[in-house]
Each structure stands twice: as C-alpha cells, then as structure tokens.
Simulated assay, not measured.
Amino acid sequence: MAWYKEWFDSPYYHILYKNRDEQEAQICLTNMFNLVPIVKGSKILDIPCGRGRHAAYLAKNGYQVTGVDLSLESIAYAKENYQGLSNLEFFVHDMRVPFREGYYDYVLNFFTSFGYFETETENVACLQALAKNLKKEGTLILDFFNTERVLKELVQKEEVKVEGISFYIERELQGKFLVKTIRFTDKGQDYCFQERVMAISPEEFRNYFKQAGLRPLRVFGNYFLEPYDEFMPRVIWVLVKE
C-alpha cells in the first residue's frame, strides 16, 4: 500500500498535525483572492482537501467549492461536519485522475500535497490531470515546501508530544526523496509510518508546468505572499491553464 493511503487514513496523522497553523493558510487564501479578485460564485476545486477546513472556509465566503481527497476517513469527517453548506460538496477521488474536466475556475493544491509519486512522469501526469479540471485560462495555485531551504535546515531527529503520545521523528534524504519516519507507541501498540515526498526544485517544477500546459504568473515565498527567494519557507505557484 502507498504510504499516503495508509498514513492519511490513520487517526494518528490528525493527532500529530493538529497544531498546524490553519490561520496562516486562511490568511494566504484571503490575501490571494484580494490580489487576484474572484467573482463570488466562482467554482473552486480543493484537491486534496483533507478534512475540509479550507474548503469550508471558502464556501462560507461565497464560492462554489468541491473538496476531494483519497482518504475515506477525511471525506467522511468533512461530510459530517460541513453538511450545512449548500455550496460545498465532498468526494473521495484520486487527484491523478481528472475529476470534472473544464469545469473549475480555480484549483487549489496546498500544504505540499504533491510529489508523493515515484517518478517524474507520474508528477507530470498528475499536473496534467489537475489542469484538465480547469476551464481555459483557469488558475491553479500550488503550494510546496522550499526544497533548498528544507534540505539546508533539515532536522534529522526530534520528539513531538501530542495528546500524551511521544512521536519520534527521523528525516533523511534518500536519493531524490525526503523521507520522514514516524515511530510511536500508543496503548501498548508500536506504530511506524513514513512520509515520502520528492524533493522538487523550482527549475524542475517549471519543466513540469511546461509539459502540463500551465504557465507561471506569480511565485510567492510564504502565506503572506511575499516574493519567493531561496530563504523563504514555501514556493507558492500561481499558474494559468494555456
């Protein structure tokens, strides 16, 4: 089983990352839509959407939003917790396959939700699928970690305590992949999960985009949309479908 299918459906994934700064991501979305004004009612695809918090935030701001994710658990949670919003829908779906071709004004791919696959061919195919969901001249916003900075500042080992569980985390570069191994014990049971993300450079991304028919418009370096440089924590691409 692929690591992301097992890990993202685990309740421990949501425990470990429960303290992620969701407010920063919402600031990013607000800033982005102030920078590139979007007509209320525009169709937005959040892919993958996780448990749907950001899709719900967008729906509450007047957009027609679809959230899709490969995780059965995450989509079940989203449907249960955000069922009161008529302009919001959720589906289980693999982002490597187009969902609704030529339908969306915007496609969002946030929180390094890319680079999970084993080959560059699969990465390009995934981007092509994301692009197919867009109308002509629609916009894809893709948020990835700054590979150069991550590798320079890599914390090889750390312990994180959340809800009484001690997560022992090790990080290393294995070939082209940044691998995070997560070990912990809960209720007498030992667990081990991995995250495995391809360390993709901005130059490699530009090559992918060209093959996928996507043209970069802007590149930002954090959720406050400051210009990207090698010292920034993120690489946030704003791309248009050609």
Score class of each variant (00 low, 15 high):
F33T: 02
F220E: 02
K161W: 02
F167K: 08
K187F: 05
G67P: 00
Y63C: 05
F177S: 03
V36E: 08
D46E: 10
K241L: 04
P11R: 06
L58V: 03
F220L: 09
V150F: 09
V97H: 08
E120I: 05
K40W: 01
M1E: 11
Y57Q: 07
V39T: 15
Q23L: 14
T119R: 07
H93P: 02
V197H: 02
V107R: 00
M95T: 05
C192T: 14
E73R: 15
R196G: 02
G213V: 08
E163S: 13
A125S: 13
R100H: 10
L72R: 11
Q83K: 13
M198P: 02
V179M: 04
F144I: 14
Y13I: 06
P227E: 14
N207T: 13
S166Y: 09
K132A: 15
N81L: 04
F90R: 02
T30P: 00
M232D: 04
Q156T: 12
V68R: 00
K5T: 05
D9G: 02
Y13N: 00
R218N: 07
T112V: 05
Y17L: 10
N87D: 10
A76P: 01
C126Q: 11
P202F: 01
P48R: 02
F184G: 06
D105K: 07
V160M: 08
E242H: 08
T147Q: 12
L72M: 09
L35N: 08
P233T: 11
Q26S: 09
E24D: 12
R215H: 12
V39P: 02
F144M: 14
G221I: 04
P233W: 09
F193H: 09
P233C: 10
I169K: 10
Y228Q: 04
E148W: 05
V160C: 05
E195C: 09
E120Y: 10
A25K: 14
N222A: 08
V235E: 14
Y208M: 06
Y168T: 07
E230D: 12
V150I: 14
I27R: 13
N222D: 15
G52I: 02
G50S: 08
S201R: 12
Y208R: 04
F33Y: 06
E172R: 14
V68T: 15
V155A: 09
Y223Q: 08
T181V: 13
L214D: 03
Q174G: 05
Y4L: 03
Q189H: 11
E118N: 13
F91A: 12
D190G: 04
L29W: 01
G84P: 00
R20W: 06
N81F: 06
E89R: 15
D94S: 07
E172C: 11
P37T: 10
I15C: 08
G138W: 01
R218K: 10
R206Q: 14
R215K: 15
N146G: 08
I141G: 00
W3Y: 15
K18M: 09
Q189N: 12
R51K: 15
N81T: 08
E22R: 09
E73F: 01
G67W: 00
T30M: 06
V65N: 00
Y63V: 00
Y13D: 03
P233R: 11
F114E: 01
Q23D: 15
F117H: 09
F33G: 02
C192G: 04
Y82L: 04
T30I: 08
